[in-house]
Design a protein around this nucleic acid. Sequence first.
DNA 1: TGTACATCAGTGAACGCGCGTTCACTGATGTAC
DNA 2: TGTACATCAGTGAACGCGCGTTCACTGATGTAC
Lengths: 205, 205
Amino acid sequence: MPKQGYHHGNLRQALIDAALELIEVRGPTGFTLSEAAKQAGVTPAAVYRHFEGREDLIAEAALQGYVIFADLMDAAYNSGQPSALKAFEATSRAYLAFARANPGHYIAMFESGISVNRTPDLAAAANRANNVLEQAAGDLSQHIPAEKRPPASMFSAHIWALSHGVVELFARNSPGRASPFPADELLESGIGIYLRGLGLVDPDG
Amino acid sequence: MPKQGYHHGNLRQALIDAALELIEVRGPTGFTLSEAAKQAGVTPAAVYRHFEGREDLIAEAALQGYVIFADLMDAAYNSGQPSALKAFEATSRAYLAFARANPGHYIAMFESGISVNRTPDLAAAANRANNVLEQAAGDLSQHIPAEKRPPASMFSAHIWALSHGVVELFARNSPGRASPFPADELLESGIGIYLRGLGLVDPDG
DNA sequence: TGTACATCAGTGAACGCGCGTTCACTGATGTAC
DNA sequence: TGTACATCAGTGAACGCGCGTTCACTGATGTAC
């Protein structure tokens, strides 16, 4: 239970939460440190007790995002085991679900311009998420004859790009850009066709 | 030939060009009207002779982008005729080529937060580009048996999303995110697999 | 061709604003005895 | 349990800055006669 009064109790996390909300609403660069402080009920100067500055606050928000993201992907992967196909499909669904449920995190991670190599922590968290997807793709590609099997990293890059594109163009309400189909349906069907192209699902499915 | 001296001659376009350069370098929100004016060799106040303000300048840059984009897509589509497959593949390649050659335009169009419905001109230009891709997808899908044929708009949304994802994640040097493969190779192979999944190209290709 | 004048694209100074960051400070908390 | 004191998370005032926008103006351009 957070303490009250002069000392905030958990200002650090409150600032991150405020930042996430503002990033979601105002966009990655519309976000201001001062406003985040205000929203947390605190003077802008107080932020400097917990972060080195504006960039550091955003980076921390992104880091928490990557951790949640990697955990989600990992859980999804495991939930589909031992079927390589089910595991793979679950991770794809987890990608979209994460972007939906955590738009602030998603923006901080992918649109804020924060380098993933800013800190070792951040790079590690980002890598962990990437590795889950690559693992899922690798498992699945074992079912393709070795001589016509694309590298797992290419496979996973395709899926990542398709997922990211669906999120950016059709899942967030891009100003003025109407989605022709629900994002999850679009992603699911796209991946289905792609997997058929790899010979991994029934052509008459 | 532009005039010289007190009167600039073609300040309007010079401002748009400066904006495009700055948007490319500084990002969609890092761009400032004052800096664009400075780069065009003019006082910030002069901008208001040609645009209503900052937003209007960005919107104009986006509009020019959509026009170029639609023209490119259209030319690519025609270049592949009468083969539906060639026309389709050419439009996909044109997408990536445009993003590569016109990063400022691309950002103004897709990442600046400018609504595509801001003006009728803008909406029309955006629609024209979209229609080319949808047309190409529609032509191609005629080769799929009608009962297992996805709607052309879904088909084109898949390709658009994949292209956009490749551009965002792997074509621009996303800070700290190394591309596992060249972007064009990634897009080409991804689309190849997708088309195979639709039964539109030789499974042993 | 030369002059008078209207047009209008630019200037430059000023504005109010919110930003990120710094600093000396203060007052609440927690610990030692 | 009570008191003295160290710690440290917050305050609030101040800073310099660049922003977008406005305004009255000026001087170059182009046209009418």
